[in-house]
Simulated assay, not measured.
Amino acid sequence: MNQRPIAVTFRATLIATLAAAGLVSGMPLAHAANKPSSKPPAEKTVEAATAPLPANAVARVNNVVITQAQLDDAVRASNAPDTPALRASVKNQLIARELFRQAAEKQHYESRPQVVAAVEQARTVAMTAAYLRDQVKPAPVTEADVKAKYDAIVATLGEFEYKPSAIAVKDADTAQTVLTQLKKGTDFAQLAKQYSQGPGAAQGGALNWISFKTPIQPGTTQNWPQPLAEALVKLPQGGVSSAPVQIGDAFWILRVDEKRATQIPQYDQIKDALRKQLEQLALQKATAQVVVDLMKNARIQQQ
């Protein structure tokens, strides 16, 4: 293999490589697959300069081989179209990273406190992740579970669904100021951006479509506070709350932007999303159980 083009393209793209050092954060270090040689440094240097590249190699940096498999992995990690130009660029990044590693190792950077701490943190993260993969056993989600979830959601839907906007403020005086401005014709979205501390404030208070079975019963409000749900269904399309609704320490003003007959998606349209939701809940439940089990035999002190 001709090694001269490697050196030429490396020099030409080194600056770009440095600027894009984080481009392929998952890129494996070239030395990881190679064992250190026991030969003296001078002999290793001569060997590296004269010996042909192994069949599975795309480059060698001093005595460290960069393999075709490492290049393939790095190209995949870039999430970019696999082209000859990309491969040349990524190979140069691998070469640069190996040069950096060797230079840092030569100056004993591995013993610096911040490097030792980073290595320990990475070790802890990898060890914990491996432990959780082995110990957390979420219950499988069946098709019956998904269908039951779908049926339960449909059972909470009413005849109509609403596209609301909301302004939530922290005190009654501010709520009254907002209501006064609305009566004067000030734009609801403008006031939401100015005053609201609730969801959707940056979008003018706009919220997602919601539907409630009426009369509203506890537990059938799609996680909305029941007083808000009751206030919303009493408003006509375009209607605005005549008085703020207090929920805890917040005062809410609602507007119904749109109102229509409830549109229930077909089961096949949303079953995949529901399955993912149930699988996430199962994972959270299983993880919580592992924590509970560990805490039974642990001594934990807190302030």
Rank of each mutant, 00 (worst) to 15 (best):
S242M: 13
T262Y: 01
K213Q: 13
I210W: 00
A243I: 11
S242V: 13
P227N: 09
A250E: 15
I210S: 05
V233L: 01
E258W: 01
A231W: 03
G219C: 04
S241Y: 01
F251D: 13
P215Q: 08
V245H: 09
A243D: 06
F251C: 12
W252F: 15
G238W: 07
A229W: 07
G219P: 06
N208W: 05
A229E: 05
Q226S: 06
F251V: 12
S241C: 12
S211I: 02
V240P: 05
L228F: 11
S242A: 14
D257R: 09
A206E: 15
V256R: 00
A206T: 13
P265Q: 08
Q246S: 13
V240A: 02
T221H: 02
V256E: 06
I253G: 04
Q217P: 02
V240G: 00
V256S: 01
A261R: 11
I216P: 00
Q226M: 14
A206P: 03
F251L: 08
K213S: 12
L207S: 10
W252A: 00
E230L: 03
Q217W: 09
T214H: 01
S211D: 01
F251S: 11
E230C: 05
V256T: 13
V240D: 07
P227E: 09
L207Y: 01
A243V: 12
G248V: 07
L254T: 08
P265R: 11
V245M: 11
E258I: 00
A229G: 02
G239C: 11
V256C: 05
W224S: 05
I216G: 00
A231I: 03
Y267I: 03
P265E: 10
Q266A: 13
I264S: 06
L235E: 08
W209V: 10
K213W: 06
S241L: 06
P218C: 08
T214I: 00
G239H: 07
W252S: 09
L254C: 03
D268Q: 13
A261D: 09
S241T: 10
I210E: 08
I210Y: 06
R260C: 02
G238C: 04
G248A: 07
G219Q: 07
D249L: 12
D257A: 13
I253R: 00
K259E: 04
T262D: 08
V245A: 08
Q226N: 12
L235H: 10
Y267F: 14
G239N: 00
G219L: 07
K234T: 14
P218H: 10
Q217E: 15
N223E: 15
E258Y: 02
L207P: 02
L254I: 03
Y267S: 04
F251P: 10
G219F: 02
T220Q: 15
I216M: 02
D257H: 09
Q226P: 02
I247E: 13
D268W: 02
P227K: 07
T262M: 04
